[in-house]
């Protein structure tokens, strides 16, 4: 079966995000004063073959832990669907 994972990576809450702060200030200066905070992250689309959805999820989790994220500064979440 073919699966597709959508992986979102963000900096941990405890880590300052200077890029997010800069975007926040830009939004404020463009008139979006109601913006409270912005965090900039990364998004991956990973296509993977697996016998079932559980196996696909397990593979994606391993990919995240091993390469896609750095657990010192980042956290991740993902969704796996057929396709």
């Amino acid at each position: 079966m073919n699966y597709q994972a959508q992986v979102n990576v963000t900096l941990k809450k405890s880590v300052l995000d200077p890029q997010g702060k800069t975007v926040l200030h830009a939004l404020h200066s463009l008139g979006f004063e109601e913006t409270r905070d912005v965090r900039v992250g990364k998004y991956f689309e990973v296509k993977v073959e697996a016998s079932d959805v559980k196996k696909a999820e397990e593979k994606i989790r391993k990919m995240c832990e091993k390469l896609l994220i750095n657990p010192v500064i980042e956290q991740y979440s993902f969704k796996v669907s057929e396709g």
Binding site: L16, P18, T22, N70, V72
Partner: peptide
């Protein structure tokens, strides 16, 4: 070395970007 775990911690973008 940080990514390899030979030293602890990680690097972030410079505060000035």
């Amino acid at each position: 070395l940080l990514e390899a775990g030979l030293l602890p911690g990680a690097m972030l973008r410079n505060k000035t970007l």
